[in-house]
Amino acid sequence: MDTEKHTITMLVENEPGVTARVSGLFASRGYNIETICGAPTANPDMSRITITTNTTPDQMEQIMKQVRRLVNVIKVRDMTGDDAVRREMALICVKAMASHRSEIQRIVENFRARIVDTGLNHYIIEVTGRLEKIEALMRLLEPMGIKKVARSGMLALYREPG
C-alpha cells in the first residue's frame, strides 16, 4: 500500500513524560515520526502535541486507536484534510556575500519572510508557512549556500465554523 503524509494533533495532560509515552508508542510499533512539536495551550493543565508521519491508511487507523488508549491523552484528531490550517516555521542561516545580498533580500521579500539577524557574511531568515513554501524558499537560497537550518515541525488547528 502507498503511504501518505498525515498530521495528527492531540490534547494531552501537561505532565512530565507524556510526550515520551506518545513518541514511545510510535517507536515500539515501528511508525516513523517526521516532525513532533509539543507546547502548552491556553489551559495550563493541557498541552498540544502535533506529529507528522508517513503511513498507510491501515497504519493510520491503528495509530489513532493506540494513541487514544494512552492514559494522558484527552483528544486526538487527524488534521490531514482541508479543514485544518497547517504551518511550520524555519530559521535559515544563509551565506550572504556582498554580491548576493540584494538577491537574497528580494527572495526573502517575495516569500514574505524576514531577515532576523545580519552578520558580515550571513543572514538568518525566518519564514512561516506551508511545507511547500519553506522548501521552495530553501531551493532558491541553496545556490547562495545554506549554512544551517532549524525547523519547528508542523503545527495545525482546525478552522472554526463561520
Score class of each variant (00 low, 15 high):
H100N: 12
N110H: 07
K95R: 13
A96Y: 00
F111S: 02
I107E: 02
I107W: 01
K95M: 15
A98Q: 12
A113S: 11
E103Q: 14
S99F: 05
S102M: 14
E126W: 04
V94C: 03
R114Q: 13
Y123M: 13
I124V: 12
N121E: 11
E109D: 10
V108I: 06
M97V: 09
R112G: 05
A96H: 00
A96P: 01
Y123R: 03
C93K: 15
I124D: 00
T118P: 06
Y123A: 04
S102Y: 14
I104Y: 00
N110A: 10
V94N: 10
A98V: 14
L120P: 11
H122F: 15
Q105V: 06
A98F: 15
H122E: 12
Q105H: 06
I125E: 09
Q105R: 12
A113N: 07
V116M: 10
S99E: 07
I104K: 01
N121H: 15
E109S: 12
I107L: 04
N110G: 05
E109L: 07
R106H: 13
R112F: 08
A96W: 03
E126C: 03
I125F: 07
V108L: 08
E109W: 13
N110V: 05
S99V: 13
A96I: 04
R106L: 15
E109T: 15
V108F: 02
R101W: 05
R114D: 05
V94I: 01
V94K: 00
S102V: 13
A113G: 05
H122W: 11
E103C: 15
A96V: 01
I124H: 03
L120I: 12
I107D: 00
